[in-house]
Amino acid sequence: MHYDASATSSLYQALPWMMVLDERRIAAEPMLREVIDLIVAHDDSGSPGAQLITLRVFEMAFVLSLRPMLEGTLDRPVAVAAFQHPEIGKALLIMSTRFAEPWTLESLSREVGMSRSAFAASFRKLVGEAPAAHLTACRMRESARLLAESSVPLGAVPERVGYKSAVGFHLAFRKHHSIPPGEYRQRHRSQLAG
């Protein structure tokens, strides 16, 4: 895909070099699954307009791929302003996609090229919460998804979402969801069975 680098948004510039969507995420987005199937099956390279059609199909796949990645981050109007800020937009994307890494306020601010104090102040102003609280929310969202929708062992979930300590994860999960992780999994499994 070709684009004008001078006209790209901060959100586009903040995207990782590579996005990986597993089968579960593709299955959860029926339109994305159909577009991927179309790309795989489509082979009319010699027909008129084929190059333009292929480009548009890839653009659609790209946009649809972003949706699960950004799920939950654009539900507040303030988040749109935050994504327009080059450094804060990049930080939000990092937290949404690389939440398992051992981020600190220092390492996040360094990653986006801001001083620690300027980053913390700008993030709080634009997002409405501290960077640590936002990162915790991203981790709790993913841990809830893993517990409800996957067979990842309970003991493996903390590391998958960025916690070195199972106790620390347990306390954070209970504070965020009001129930322990094991009970959360049991409730969701019983809802699926019933």
Results as ranks from 00 to 15, higher is better:
G46A: 09
P48R: 04
A50S: 14
L52Y: 00
L52S: 01
L52N: 00
I53S: 05
I53C: 05
T54G: 02
L55Y: 03
L55K: 08
E59C: 04
M60P: 00
M60I: 03
V63H: 04
L64H: 01
S65W: 02
L66R: 01
L66A: 00
L66W: 02
R67L: 10
P68I: 12
L70H: 07
E71W: 12
E71Y: 13
E71H: 14
G72T: 09
G72S: 10
L74E: 05
D75V: 11
R76T: 05
R76N: 07
V78S: 09
A79L: 03
A81N: 05
F83A: 00
Q84M: 05
Q84P: 00
G89L: 02
G89Q: 01
A91P: 06
L93G: 08
L93C: 11
L93N: 07
L93R: 05
L93M: 13
I94V: 14
R98S: 11
F99N: 01
P102T: 12
W103F: 13
L105M: 13
E106N: 14
L108G: 04
V112W: 05
V112C: 13
V112I: 11
M114L: 15
R116H: 13
A118Q: 14
A118V: 10
F119A: 10
A120P: 04
A121R: 14
A121E: 10
F123A: 05
R124A: 06
K125H: 08
G128T: 03
A130W: 03
A133Q: 10
A133W: 03
L135G: 03
C138G: 02
M140K: 08
R141T: 09
R141Q: 10
A144Y: 05
R145N: 13
L146E: 08
L147H: 04
S150T: 15
S150W: 11
S150P: 08
L154S: 05
A156F: 14
V157N: 01
P158V: 02
E159T: 13
E159D: 14
V161G: 02
V161E: 02
S165V: 07
S165K: 09
A166S: 14
